[in-house]
């Protein structure tokens, strides 16, 4: 397994005159070939910021520190002046709402061609067969017809396939998918997830999947990183984390999902709100909303490791956790 992407100690902050918002704090993650890693968390937890910083897509006003390596080669994370970055060569990103990712005034062919030529990997002469190939790889029936259409003539699921094809045109090794199915309904969601899975299995494409849907994580991902208030608070193999979540936040998050099999008469929920990231956070970021709060939580929690590679950032040891549950 080659490590395609590794990020260590990523910090993203947005300084302004009155305050500085620290959106991402000390995030490290890595992505191996053919692996699907989920970045999970609620809105405002810094998932998208992590992805954007890795891709070098943040505006110049952002302050980004940390190290990033694409296939072993370092890449500066500073948003200023690295538009032609390694990220652009090795990775592609797809965004949440496919309907806004495409320009309504141009046909699919025009838009895909632009991307293909800009990537520098395809010449104008060979572009058409490449596009047809990518569109059939995302299982769109009749690619030649699709190329002639405008975005409004396609359904949401079809557009998301086009957007994935557009990402594949750049021949990426890594695909960053930012909530790719949130705007779609369940059956289409299942189809898109299956497509991402087959791309990973058959073509060795690595996927960093940003989502807040634990169901999506469980059905698709190999590893999971749980984010809260700009930090990764738990990480590990998907089955370990979802079967035996160690951090109280992960536990709570799982308990909020209503099960289709029913039986629950009460749903747990996480009261309170995500802390204001423009203020310094003393100790654990989750302490205000945590029902296992201890006096020691005012100090910064250690990262604890469980024997199977599962890691979490909390004062509670796993034995204490077991006593509680």
């Amino acid at each position: 397994m080659t490590t395609l992407l590794s990020v260590t100690g990523l910090n993203v902050s947005f300084p302004s005159i009155r305050k500085t918002v620290r959106a991402v704090r000390g995030v490290s993650l890595s992505l191996d070939e053919g692996e699907i890693v989920a970045l999970v968390g609620e809105s405002g937890s810094g998932k998208t910021m992590t992805a954007m910083a890795t891709m070098g897509l943040l505006p110049d006003s952002a302050e980004v520190t940390g190290e990033c390596q694409w296939l072993g080669r370092s890449q500066s994370l500073s948003p200023r002046g690295n538009r032609k970055s390694l990220a652009g060569q090795h990775a592609a990103i797809i965004f949440q709402n496919p309907l806004t990712a495409l320009n309504p005034f141009f046909t699919i062919e025009q838009q895909l061609t632009d991307v293909a030529l800009a990537s520098g990997k395809v010449s104008r002469k060979t572009v058409l067969p490449v596009l047809l190939d990518k569109l059939s790889r995302v299982q769109l029936p009749d690619p030649a017809q699709v190329l002639k259409k405008y975005p409004h003539q396609l359904s949401g699921g079809q557009i998301q396939r086009v957007v994935i094809a557009m990402a594949l045109v750049c021949q990426p090794r890594v695909l960053i998918a930012d909530e790719p199915t949130t705007a779609l309904d369940v059956i289409v969601q299942a189809e898109i997830l299956q497509l991402l899975q087959s791309l990973a299995r058959e073509e060795g494409l690595s996927v960093l999947l940003i989502t807040h849907d634990l169901g999506v994580v469980a059905s698709l991902c190999d590893r999971v990183e749980v984010m809260y208030a700009g930090e990764i608070i738990e990480s590990g193999q998907m089955s370990d984390v979802l079967r035996s979540p160690a951090h109280p936040y992960t536990r709570k998050l799982m308990a909020t999902v209503p099960d289709i099999r029913g039986g629950a008469t009460v749903l747990e929920y996480i009261s309170g709100q995500v802390p204001d990231l423009s203020r310094p956070i003393r100790g654990c970021a989750f302490k205000e909303r945590c029902d296992r709060r201890l006096p020691v939580c005012d100090e910064s929690p250690p990262v604890r490791a469980l024997n199977d590679g599962q890691r979490y950032r909390c004062h509670l040891t796993s034995e204490q956790e077991v006593e509680f549950s």
């Binding site: 369940v186 969601q189 849907d213 469980a218 059905s219 979802l242 079967r243 099960d259 289709i260």
Partner: peptide, 13 residues
Amino acid sequence: ALIDAVPSITPGK
């Protein structure tokens, strides 16, 4: 089909 398409949060399924 709708029911089958709902992803379960239980891993291994």
